[in-house]
Amino acid sequence: MLTKRIIPCLDIKNGRTVKGINFVSLRDAGDPVELAEIYSREGADELVFLDITATEERRKTLLDLVSKVAKAINIPFTVGGGISTIEDVDKLLRAGADKVSINSSAVKNPQLINDLSSKFGSQCIVVAIDAKKIDNKWKVHLVGGKIPTEIDLFKWAKEVAQRGAGEILFTSMNNDGTKKGFANKALAKMSSIVNVPIIASGGAGSIHHFIDVFRDGRSDAALAASVFHFKEIEINKLKQELNNNNIPVRI
């Protein structure tokens, strides 16, 4: 049986992890490679690296990092952040990334999804969507959730799937950072209208939230950052609990 995936997300700036990371065992708390190895050993199913570097040199630094991560770990990983061309994707995949995630660039140029999926295959193209519920309507937001658009979340989700996205990574900005649980209703609705796997993001605070996101939110995977970085939830224990609740996971 296909299992539900647990995906820690690492924010990267200038080749280093950004948020304070509370790992006693880590020799260098800012080293993404070491952190990736630890998560991989603890049973993470995949990793996501989100590059938030804004400088000119970002691409080279990121490619170096991708290649180091690919050498070190034996589970798949996705790279996102500022990807807007076929050339960007080609270089990242060649450096060893398994998948790339595109977000604002897909909204600005939806044809990019078609171009990337026909060139590299849908399986490595993740479309990330940040959305916020305003007046009972879910609206897509750009640039890390800063800029609102009039685009309806569900229409956009359907469109990206039709254009060839292999997966959708949906972050609810209403839930992100609250630690009060994922946006399960919106996630379940998305699952009912699109046929590609959905990664839930935003709101993880407890093990129960993960049980809910798979059961009520019908998600295929769940992504979180701080609860893992600060060891509030240990991946081993999380997966054991999911298993105890009859949610299929790789243990």
């Binding site: 049986m1 299992t3 995936r5 199913d45 399986q123 796997p197 295929d220």
Partner: peptide, 11 residues
Amino acid sequence: DQLKVPQIGWN
């Protein structure tokens, strides 16, 4: 189409 496609993950 009865299943999510692609199949992605650990099986």
